[in-house]
Structure formats: C-alpha cells, structure tokens
C-alpha cells in the first residue's frame, strides 16, 4: 500500500476577509492522480495555490515527504511569452538547462530536436502545451500541480496532453494534483477526485464510486449529464 503524502485537516482560505474555502479534510497518497473538480469560482485554483504555499491558509497541511513540485499554472500561456524573443532553448535556459538536457525532456513529450530553436510564442497550441509539460518535468518533480493544463488548446490536443501526462505519471510514479471542470478528464485519467462547489458541497474518493448524478447536481448547482464509459 502506498504511503500518505499529504494530510489536510480543517483547511481553509480567506481572501479579502471572506472564506473561499473552509473545513476541507482529505489525504493524498503517493502516486495518486487527484483531480480537483468544480465549477468556476468554487476555489479550485485557490486550493492549488494555497497547497503550494503561495497564499496563506488556516487549518493543518502536513507533507509527509519533502515535496519537489512542478507547477503548471493556468495563466502561463503563449500570450505571456509571445511578445518576447524567447526560443524553446531560452525557456529551458531560464531553469539553467542546456539544450541537450532540454532535449531529453522534449523527447519525452514527443517533440523533435528542431523545436529548440523555434520561438516559443509561435509554436502551435498543442506543441506549446507539450513543451510546458516538458519544462515542468525538467525540474525533476515528484509532484505535479496542473491548473487547467489544456484550456488553451482544442479537444484533440487536450486529449494528447492528458494521455501524455498519464503515461509519464505511470512511468515516473508521480503524484498529480490536477484542476479541471471537465468531467471526462476525471473518468478517463484520475484515480481520485476532490470536488468543490460554491455552496460548500464536497466529495473525495474514487470517481466511479462517488460521482453520482445527485452529487454532481449539488456540486454544479444544475443538472449534469453523465456519460460513463
């Protein structure tokens, strides 16, 4: 049985003096692919950022193993680098990686060697997102925090990125915290799901065991059609 990696007890976050999250309790075991699910405004990103120590929280958060974190935030997209003369090689250089080291990670996500000299802002959406996954892996993390990693790309591109992440997750024994509002991702890739809602409805467990139509209606505040495979 895997070891407990993170314990969260009575966890809460206040922003502008109002509670965004409160009374959260869950444990994450090593090797979990945990998806944080919920509608917009339910506090998914806030939870991720507070677990990363980027914003203060109340309650307890105990890491049982020193985390080496790779973080792929929602706001990191092509728009943020398009204005700058940054090649793929330059982007890896920001983490002090030499081109051949960068190539090891780029190959891992299925990108060819010619890509290192291309301007990052002008890659296709899918290529850019895969490059980011490689860039995050280059920090040698044991835990990945992914915040809507496929929002900027089309459905097929998004599926490629998730399949890739799943393959790397299995091969490298990573633990993944993934934020999405896409139910399909939960069923297709996650071992566990943590749901948040604006009204405070919560759930935590194995997706196929706990995600019932009633629970999803509570979480999303509306009827949600389920297409299980």
């Amino acid at each position: 049985m895997s070891d407990i990696l993170l314990d969260v007890k009575d966890f809460g976050v206040m922003l502008d003096d109002s509670p965004v999250l409160s009374g959260l309790n869950f444990s994450v075991t090593e090797g979990e692919f945990l998806t944080v699910l919920g509608p917009n405004g339910s506090g998914k990103t806030v939870l991720l950022r507070s677990l990363l120590g980027l914003i203060p929280h109340t309650g307890e958060m105990n890491w049982h193993k020193k985390p080496r974190i790779g973080y792929l935030p929602q706001g990191l997209n092509q728009v943020s680098v398009r204005d700058m003369p940054l090649t793929v090689k330059d982007i890896f250089g920001l983490k002090k990686l030499k081109p051949d080291e960068a190539m090891t990670f780029l190959k891992l996500v299925g990108l060819e060697s010619g890509i290192t000299n291309k301007r990052a802002g002008y890659l296709s959406g899918g290529e850019f997102q895969r490059m980011l996954v490689a860039w995050v892996l280059a920090s040698h993390p044991n835990i990945l925090f992914l915040d809507e990693p496929t929002t900027a790309i089309d459905v097929a591109g998004g599926e490629t990125v998730y399949s890739l992440l799943k393959e790397i997750w299995q091969r490298q024994g990573l633990t993944i915290f993934n934020v999405t509002h896409d139910l399909n991702i939960v069923y297709a890739h996650s071992t566990h799901v943590l749901c948040l809602s604006r009204l405070g409805h919560r759930c935590y467990g194995v997706p196929k065991e706990i995600l019932t139509p009633d629970l999803l209606r509570d979480v999303y505040g509306a009827e949600v059609k389920l297409y299980t495979h």
């Binding site: 973080y71 990191l76 920001l94 920090s139």
Partner: peptide, 12 residues
C-alpha cells in the same frame, strides 16, 4: 522567470 510567471518562479 518572475516576469513570465511569478508563482512558477516561487515554486522553483
């Protein structure tokens, strides 16, 4: 790195 994304810089 801070200019590109401050939170990523912090986690690095």
């Amino acid at each position: 790195l801070i200019n590109i994304h401050e939170d990523v810089a912090r986690t690095e």
